[in-house]
Write a protein that binds this DNA or RNA. Structure first.
Length: 266
DNA sequence: TACATATGATCAT
DNA sequence: TGATCCTATGTAA
């Protein structure tokens, strides 16, 4: 589930559930017992996201740093159920309980560490909105990597993952192999603004929906929620929602990549 | 049961 | 480029 929209939503939901009252923290799995003990019983001051990184700030100055990676999950659960033994971190108060499993990163850090993590990240569309355009365009112009590879580079722009990269390039009509520095400022702005819009929508819906209203009737509904919500991701061999061609799958930067050969000409 | 796969990232070769 | 880490889920055997 985790691209930037998920983490920003997570930060907001955790704030809603935990900021303002003492929180108990423990590690049923045992691998984060020491970290959890550092904030157990404290108040959470705020919870925020930078790209795909989540930071929860506590009274003591300790900061919980979580990166979900590919398979991590952080979700609300029924507080009355016993935690499975795979739960790295459990946060609860009287009425709410959340379970973290399979994170790539789960650590208790200090403000300086947060600063170092954030310093390596490119502009975050959900934090900056239109104000991030300059940095993004500058990043594009100084790289000759294929745009399809660059969009996964968190130092160019923070928060995009493998679903959004295919979808964004489809909607902008850009071929994934196009070198970054061959992309005009006009197209770069389009890329950025579209990314802002899509991530905001994803944060609001808590899922990735990229299909625009005007295209939604072009291909019959499949009944598969994901397939109906996207143009390209995992739709290889299926009809493009904008033309008569079929979506193709390729590999780029070690991950599967999908595009429409006629809507996204080289 | 076993295996493949997953919306990530890092480190080794 | 490939191996590796982390866990859950769906499909195959």
């Amino acid at each position: 589930m985790p691209e930037g929209h998920t983490i920003h939503r997570l930060a907001a939901d955790l704030s809603k559930d935990f900021v303002g009252a003492p929180v108990s923290a423990d590690s049923p799995q045992g691998r984060f017992s020491e970290g959890a003990a550092l904030v157990d019983g404290e108040m959470m001051l705020k919870s925020e996201a930078w790209g795909k990184h989540l930071f929860c700030h506590w009274e003591s100055g300790n900061i919980l740093h979580v990166h979900l990676g590919l398979i991590g999950k952080f979700r609300p659960v029924d507080p009355s159920l016993p935690p499975p033994d795979t739960i790295r971190l459990r946060l609860s108060n009287g009425s709410k309980s959340w379970h973290l499993t399979g994170p790539q990163t789960c650590a208790m850090v200090l403000a300086d560490d947060l600063k170092h993590v954030v310093a390596k990240l490119g502009p975050d569309p959900l934090r900056l909105g239109v104000r991030g355009i300059r940095r993004f365009l500058q990043g594009l112009s100084s790289s000759n990597k294929p745009i399809g590879a660059a969009l996964l580079d968190q130092s160019l722009l923070a928060g995009i993952g493998n679903v959004y990269r295919s979808e964004i390039l489809f909607l902008c009509g850009i071929h994934p192999e196009t070198p970054c520095n061959a992309i005009t400022d006009h197209d770069g702005e389009k890329l950025w603004n579209l990314t802002v819009d899509l991530l905001r929508k994803g944060r609001k819906l808590n899922r990735i929906v990229t299909v625009q209203k005007e295209d939604s009737g072009n291909v019959p509904l499949s009944g598969n929620e994901r397939e109906d919500s996207v143009y390209a991701y995992k739709r290889e061999g299926l009809d493009c929602k904008r033309c008569q061609n079929q979506i193709q799958i390729t590999s780029l930067a070690g991950r599967s990549m999908w595009h429409c050969p006629s809507c996204q000409e080289r």
